[in-house]
Structures are given as C-alpha cells and as structure tokens.
Design a protein around this nucleic acid. Structure first.
Length: 218
DNA sequence: CTCCTGTCGT
DNA sequence: ACGACCGGAG
C-alpha cells in the first residue's frame, strides 16, 4: 500500500470532530469492563451490549471470578439480548480464565504492547479488532483500531483500496498519525459514528455528509 | 464461505 | 420483512 497521506487523515479527523463532537468512548468503566464489552460488541450494536451487561450486573458482580463461577448456560441466558449468546458466553469465560492466569490487570500491564497483543490473540474468541479495542480503550496503548467502518469510509474517500489486510491498514494509520492515544481513541469513535449514521453500507447519505466535498465515491 | 442470534431502524 | 450491527472460528 502506498503510504497514507497524513495531512489528509488529519483533515478528515478535524472535519468529523467538528461535525459530531467528542464521542466519550469508554471513559468511566474499569479496564476489565472495557475488555468484556469489547468481546460482547463483536458484530453487535452497543445498545444490545448494554442490555446484556445490565442483566449480568443484576445477577453477579462484573468480576472474572464471578463470571467463571456462573454456569455457561446461565451466563448465556443473561447475555441473550446481545445475540450470539452461546458463543459469547464461552468467549467471555475463556477470556476470564486467561485473564486470571496472567495475573489480572497488574500482570498484563507489565507487558509491552506487542507482547500483550499476541497474548490477547491467543485467546479463543479474540481476533485482531477485539484485541486492538482492548489495547487502545482498556490499556491506553497507541494502537489504531480498524473495523468494517474504517474500511468502508476510507475506501469511499479513496484513501484505502479494497482487500487490504488488517495489519497493513493498521500500520498505515499508525505510521501516518504517530503514536497518539487520545487521537486514536477519538478518531475510531468518530469513524464508527460516521459509518453508522451517514456512510452506511447501503444508501449512504452523501448529500448530508460533512466529507462530501472531498469524497470521490459520491 | 458459513455459521452464530437478538434487536433495531427503514 | 428485511438488512445491519464497534467479528471470529471452522
């Protein structure tokens, strides 16, 4: 991939921030809650995740020990509004086992970012995007999160070409933008907001889009 | 590529 | 009645 244009990426960021304002993603929750939220929100609307977490919260404290003590089918029942509840019940418990084995937050925090990333990716149910969500929003590591919205928005803008693999895109953004945690945090949140509301897969609302003037896709 | 699944907006 | 949802595994 040709090097991403840093000025272009910053211009897009400024425009999105001016349009939507700060998104305040995951500011108040504990790192552990951010991590389980990252698993539950896989291909799932966040509103449904909040319902699932609320039901779980009513039943047990949100700790790895309590989540592991709950029988898998009862955990799945709490997670029903989330969708994929049987899968996510298993993924959540697999994550909690690994989390405790690693010595919890205190143990994980000592790892370098690359080592922590590889540790996360070895857990069943954690792929590149979920791992990077955790690295950025729970551990505040300078990792740019790439998701389906990122691909769609920047392909339409002519910044990305199709069929680029995850790592290529992630490194492209990180190289262009520098290691800036607050920027990565806000940028990803803005991309999600924009992809959801305006730059939708079908029938994108191009006439209302704040990036319309600089977008060759419409 | 297919499966996993409830909930929302259109 | 759909399609889409802050994806990942087989």
């Amino acid at each position: 991939m040709a090097t991403l244009d840093a000025k272009r990426l910053r211009a897009v960021y400024r425009r999105l921030l001016a349009e939507y304002g700060p998104q305040h993603w995951w500011p108040g929750d504990s790192p552990f809650e951010v991590m389980i939220g990252a698993i539950l929100t896989q291909n799932t609307a966040w509103a449904n995740v909040e319902r699932g977490l609320g039901r779980l919260c009513d039943r047990i404290p949100l700790t790895p020990q309590a989540i592991l003590s709950l029988p898998g089918d009862e955990l799945a029942a709490c997670l029903r509004p989330v969708g994929y509840f049987n899968l996510k019940s298993q993924r959540l418990q697999a994550f909690c086992r690994a989390y405790l084995e690693a010595g919890g937050l205190a143990g994980l925090r000592t790892l370098e970012t690359e080592a922590l990333r590889h540790w996360l990716l070895r857990i069943h149910g954690i792929g590149p995007e979920t791992a990077d969500d955790m690295l950025l929003y729970a551990f505040e590591r300078p990792v740019f999160v790439v998701d389906a919205y990122t691909r769609r928005v920047f392909e339409r803008l002519g910044v990305l070409t199709e069929n680029l693999d995850y790592e290529t895109i992630r490194r492209g953004f990180e190289t262009a933008l520098g290691q800036d945690v607050p920027l990565f945090n806000e940028y990803h949140a803005l991309i999600v907001r924009h992809g959801k509301e305006l730059c939708r897969r079908t029938r994108p609302r191009c006439p209302q889009c704040c990036l319309h003037a600089s977008c060759p896709g419409c």
